[in-house]
Simulated assay, not measured.
Amino acid sequence: MTAPDRPAIPADRPAFPGDRVAGRTAVVTGAGNGLGRAITLALVARGARVVAVGRNRERLDAVAADADGLAGGVRVAAADVSDPASVAALTGDLADETVEILVNNAGIPGPVAALVDIAPDEWDEVFATNVRGIYLMCRAFLPGMVERGAGDVINLASVSGKRPLTRRTPYTASKMAVIGLTTTLAYEVGPAGVSVNCLSPGPVQGPRMTRNFTLEAERTGKTYAEAEEAFVSRAALHRMLTAEEVAAAVVAMLHMPGLCAADIDLSAGMVAR
């Protein structure tokens, strides 16, 4: 993929436009629940047209219903980002869309076990969604951005990719891979005017963390409250994030036109290294 000459900014247009969301089309993966749902609703509320992508059509339809009446609009597209054929079909279905923003949020937590007890299929499943999914989606939608000389890609990683997280090696390894993918890809397409960045959230309130605390309590003999406290006590704000805070960070990153090849920690002050 050859980067074209960067188009000149017209004299009557400011170099740093105030709104970099309204009127643009964004694809958000893993949009059916959790962070993907929150990111979709935040972008729509600010006037973006969002293509909500996920494996569960019913959940995607529910998100679209929640977005009804907001400034932008939602188009639902069922796809499995880990499957090349499914992503190719998605690309064909969206041939009529000019995708200007790609938010690669889809991910799975994977097993909670010692590395020696993790089966190769379990390891591969985590990397197929968390890393290959980003590769396939970027491979599908970056050419159009490069050709137009503009675009934004935000990949969701995790602070867990940068510090020890016991019994979670597939997840943490996959998230560090996302960071490496992001920074290298940014240098490939940056000269064409496409910004690629990474957002690394800390623990977010929701079913996933409830599951983790439950398993940790069972493993250690602690109460659920003790397992949760041991975790959140590492954060300066002494709490977890909300999905809405992560979504707000995505919107903020899109309004930072000089941001490229960055990995931003959003962790309520949890030490990442």
Rank of each mutant, 00 (worst) to 15 (best):
G193N: 05
K222R: 15
L254Q: 07
L237D: 03
A230V: 03
E216S: 14
P201S: 01
E244D: 08
E245M: 02
R239I: 10
T220L: 00
G193E: 04
K222I: 08
T223C: 08
A247C: 05
P203A: 10
H238F: 08
T210G: 13
P257G: 13
L254G: 00
H255S: 15
M240G: 00
P207Y: 10
A248C: 03
P257A: 15
G193A: 02
G202W: 01
P257M: 14
E229D: 08
E218V: 15
N212T: 14
P207A: 14
V251R: 13
R208S: 10
P201A: 04
H238K: 14
G190A: 06
T214D: 14
A230P: 03
T214E: 14
A227M: 07
E245F: 00
A227R: 09
E228W: 04
H255V: 05
T214C: 03
R211A: 10
M256P: 00
V194R: 15
Y224L: 08
F213D: 12
V194P: 09
V250K: 02
N197V: 08
T220D: 11
Q205W: 07
M209F: 11
L254S: 01
R211T: 14
A192G: 06
V232S: 02
R208D: 07
R234G: 04
R208H: 05
T220S: 14
T242A: 06
T210I: 09
P201I: 01
M209L: 13
T210P: 01
S233N: 10
T242L: 03
V194K: 15
V196K: 07
R219A: 15
A247W: 02
V251S: 08
M253E: 04
E216H: 15
M209W: 13
E216V: 11
P191Q: 11
